[in-house]
């Protein structure tokens, strides 16, 4: 049982104004989606992520659907970023990190010994919290992925296509040779997304992609995400619940359990269609979090 959740705390009443519950109108439009995921891209069964002896994420079982936007929400230190980074084996880069349980991508265990993490990362792209453009030109940033992957393509066309899809082309088409550092934070993040789709991945993982952006840039990225979801499967970690409500089809709420030694372990509390999570959560901890009582 989570220590964060205090059962003695006053439970929510029907009076929305008094609970301080967030405005969920964003999730109330659009079609209802079923609880179960039909077209499964990721199938997680009892996934546990360790850093050395420390169990950062315990026992996650969930399915992520194709061409859906799945949001991971929860307080800091609940393991949602850690879990996200294990989807494309970026956790391999941290000495001592390991994954237990089954994390299957289209039925293939991506932690099987014969799997090449490079191949996994080519299919499952990632966008980071801070726009990490390369210290190169805008053009080179987009062309880098296809080049290192040995893709035989018309690079000029591909760069234009990716920048257009990332809603950046009109802003940079005359400055392709300029350094990517000359762009604003929001433009840089869209460049990173363009760079990511240039290697033609199926999945895009986004680790708090708007954390360092202003609201206008954030809105642009969110529009872009919805646009990209037609062709890509997107998993996004966010601290911004409104953002999760606005963009995602499904939401997973994570929290941190504190064990007897005071060590925090992330765990999945509740997962389901975003509208249900925000309007009728099953777990009181989810209710507390989305109504702003903690986190």
């Amino acid at each position: 049982m989570s220590e964060i959740h205090d059962p003695a705390a006053p439970q929510s009443t029907s009076d929305l104004a008094n609970t301080g519950r967030m405005d969920v109108s964003a999730v109330l439009e659009g079609a209802e989606i079923p609880e179960t995921v039909s077209n499964i891209v990721f199938d997680l069964a009892n996934v546990r992520v360790f850093y050395g002896d420390f169990e950062a994420v315990r026992d996650v079982t969930m399915q992520i659907g194709r061409n859906e936007i799945t949001a991971f929400i929860g307080p800091s230190g609940c393991g949602k970023s850690t879990l996200l980074r294990s989807f494309n084996r970026m956790n391999d880069l941290i000495p001592g990190a390991r994954v237990e349980g089954l994390l299957a991508y289209h039925g293939f265990d991506i932690y099987a010994p014969e799997v090449d993490p490079i191949e996994v990362r080519r299919r499952i792209g990632m966008v980071f919290q801070k726009p990490n453009v390369f210290p190169k030109s805008i053009y080179e940033n987009v062309a880098y992925g296809p080049k290192v992957n040995g893709m035989k393509v018309n690079m000029d066309d591909l760069v234009e296509e990716c920048l257009t899809r990332a809603a950046l082309w009109d802003e940079v088409k005359d400055d392709l040779k300029k350094s990517a550092y000359a762009l604003s934070g929001g433009q840089q993040q869209r460049l990173v997304i363009a760079r990511c789709i240039a290697v033609k991945p199926e999945v895009i993982l986004m680790d708090e992609p708007c954390a360092s952006l202003d609201p206008i840039a954030t809105a642009k990225i969110e529009d872009l995400m919805k646009e990209l979801a037609k062709d890509y499967t997107i998993v996004i970690v966010t601290h911004n619940m409104q953002q999760a409500a606005r963009v995602s089809e499904r939401t997973a709420f994570f929290t941190a359990d504190v064990d007897a030694n005071g060590v925090r372990h992330g765990r999945l509390v509740e997962y389901g269609p975003t509208r249900r999570i925000f309007t009728a959560p099953n777990d009181p901890r989810t209710e507390d979090y989305i109504s702003g009582r903690f986190g």
Binding site: L93, I118, E119, R121, R122, F128, N132, V148, C196
Partner: peptide, 15 residues
């Protein structure tokens, strides 16, 4: 050199 440059490259499937 910031770590996120390396991660950005590796996340694109670079060796």
């Amino acid at each position: 050199v910031p770590q996120n440059i390396r991660h950005g490259s590796l996340a694109l499937g670079a060796t």
